[in-house]
Each structure stands twice: as structure tokens, then as C-alpha cells.
Design a protein around this nucleic acid. Sequence first.
DNA 1: GGCGTAACCTTACGTCGGGGTAGGTATGCT
DNA 2: AGCATACCTACCCCGACGTAAGGTTACGCC
Lengths: 194, 194
Amino acid sequence: MPPFKRLPRAVREQQMLDAAVKVFSRRGFHAASMDEIADDAGISKPMVYAYLGTKEELFVACLHREGARMMAAIVDAAAPGLPADERLWHGLRAFFNFVGAHRDGWAVLYRQARGTEPFAAELAAMRSRLVDLVAGMLDHAFRARGREVSATDLEVVAYALVGASESLADWLADHPEADPEQTATRVLNVCKEV
Amino acid sequence: MPPFKRLPRAVREQQMLDAAVKVFSRRGFHAASMDEIADDAGISKPMVYAYLGTKEELFVACLHREGARMMAAIVDAAAPGLPADERLWHGLRAFFNFVGAHRDGWAVLYRQARGTEPFAAELAAMRSRLVDLVAGMLDHAFRARGREVSATDLEVVAYALVGASESLADWLADHPEADPEQTATRVLNVCKEV
DNA sequence: GGCGTAACCTTACGTCGGGGTAGGTATGCT
DNA sequence: AGCATACCTACCCCGACGTAAGGTTACGCC
């Protein structure tokens, strides 16, 4: 038999996470089986337990990795040096491009985690950070135009904007033929009217 | 022993659906057990199978009942006789009041169904009907102000509006102290700017 | 009133998928 | 050589879906 290649732990962990994200997104948390994940990662089940722990812990690991990637993509694109309007636009673009490129990661984050109790809190924290980020950018943008908005109203608008984007991202995840850039443009057109 | 009261089928079915919605919303689809649902309904498990069928069928029944209730609440409030602006406003109010009053029903609809494969399609169909309804009202509202908007743009705006509302509804479901009416007002304030 | 039938309802169980683990084997580094 | 790390096969076992078979109450009909 061909002796399966031995790989360092860090590499295997990434492979496992890749497989886990894929399977979780397709089947949902409960319907996904550790056997299938292990199989898909080209490894056997006990390794998954040895490296990433129990099923819940594995899911949390996925959540963290995908969430961190998404936040990083947005923060990178919306560099603080740019003018306020540009930051929002680039952030939106980055968001939709991320969702377009990581459709299954997105499904894990926002379709599985939202419904399954132990993870809802984790997700709420991430979304809260995103809302804060968007609220900050909106604040900049409004101030740049000489408009002053109260902190709570700012938060509600940010929440609504994030919600609308998530909703369209969801739609995007289900329509592989759709173009992320175009979707971002559409959201921005709506926002421009405000 | 106290002979448990015998009730007609229709009544029991409603009790079962009430219990099912409650348990599904608390535990999620998979984590919910038929035993707990039966227990909560004050009945024993085989009755649930006899009346509502398998677990999936039971969940679909919940989905349909709650979805129909929500749509009915919105359609009733947004009577076609009213002027376009009023219809949107009343529809929004009805939506948020419904979510406020049926927080667990909402959780079943939009947190469980979205993530769990067999039901996602069912939910997508409902949401699609809602988007169409909203798009129709938006069309009226725009025309009343003399603005013409293409059908696809209309759909995107409707989708974004529904998404934003769902997002805030979600937030509402997690904050029992929040006021539905006030939340509706806030969304409308954002829309008024468009 | 009695009696049968149908509907209501229960206890108790078969069964199986899948999470998690015990213990052992190979491989590379020092 | 020896030790740690990567890796596997095979297994245990519990929880929960779904069901079989039987008891109990209401109601219609003579």
C-alpha cells in the first residue's frame, strides 16, 4: 500500500478545517458526521479528535477561522487612510467578494451558527464587532458631509445596513452565477440615496 | 389516577404544534426530541406520530403555520385600500409586532429553517412571496411620487429592505425588553430618506 | 340500558446512526 | 537505539426516532 504521507500538525489542521467547513456547510452542524469530515480531509477520525477536539470545538474553530478571515478582508480593504466614502465602498466590495469566494464558509458562519444554540453567542459577538466597525465608518462619512447623528441611531442604521448586506450575501451564496461586484454596487446605490 | 382528558383531534394538533414550535425554537431542529415535544404538549409520543407524522413533517407543519400567520398579519395590516406610503408603514408595524409577539415562532422560521437543508427551500419560497409583496408596495409608493424604477432594481431594494427588517427582527427576538413599535419606526426613518 | 365500534391514548421496545475512545503500529529525529 | 509524534483499525454505547400491541373512553344503535 502507498504509505500515506505524514504531514506536520499545522498542515493537517488546516486540511481538517477545510473539510469541516465544507461538510458543515453542506449538511448542517448536526447532520454532518465526524466520519465524513475525517474522510474528506483524507485522514481518520481519531486524528480530528486529537488535533481539534470534540465536534463542538471543531465547529467553533471553523467559526473563528472563517470569521477572522472575513474581518481581515474587510479591514484590509477599508484602510483608515482613505476618505470616509471610499472606506465604506471598499469595505462593501471586500465583503461581497469574500462571500462570493468563500460561499461555504459563509454558510457555516451565518446559516448554521445562527440557529444552533451554543454558537449563537459566538456569532453575535463577531457581528457586533462588524456593526461597530460599520458604525464608525458611517460616523466618519456623515461628519465629512457635516451631518451629525446620535450614537444609537448610528448603530441602528449600521445594523440595518449589515442586515441588508447579509441578506443579499445569502442570496449571492445560493446563486453561483451572480457577480459579487455588481451586488456590492447595487447596495451602494441604495445607500447613496441616504 | 386522574383520567387524562380526551380532546378532539383538532385541539390536540394545535397543542402539539404549540409545543413543537416552542421546543424547536429553544433547542434547534436536531437537538429537539420528539419525547420532549410530546411531553410539553401533555401527550405521549405516538400521538404526535399519529397526527402530525414524522419529525420532518412536524417541523414543516410548524413552518407553514407560523409562516401563514405572519403573512396574514402583514397582509391584513397593509390593506390594499390604503395609500401606498401607509401600506408600507402598516406592513412594517405588523411585521415587527408579529415578531415581538411570537419570538419563538420567528426563531423557528428564520433561524432553524434557514440552516437545515430540507427546509431551506420551503423558507425561500415564503420569503420570495414576501419580497414580491414588498416590491409591489414599493412600486406603488414610487409611482405615487412620480418615480419610475426598473423591476430588477425594485426587487433588489425589496430584498435589502426585507433583509434589514429580518436582521432587526432577529435582534428584537433576543432582546425581550425592546419595543417592536419603536423598532418599526426606526426602520421607517431610514426608509424615508430614500 | 347494554353492547360494539371507532377514536383516543399509553407503556414499552427495536434499532441504528454517529460521537467519542482504547490500544496498537509506523516513521522520523536526536 | 530510543523517544515522540503522526496515524490507524476496531470498538463501545447512548440517545433518540419510529413502532407494535394493548388499554380506555365516548358515542351510536338497537
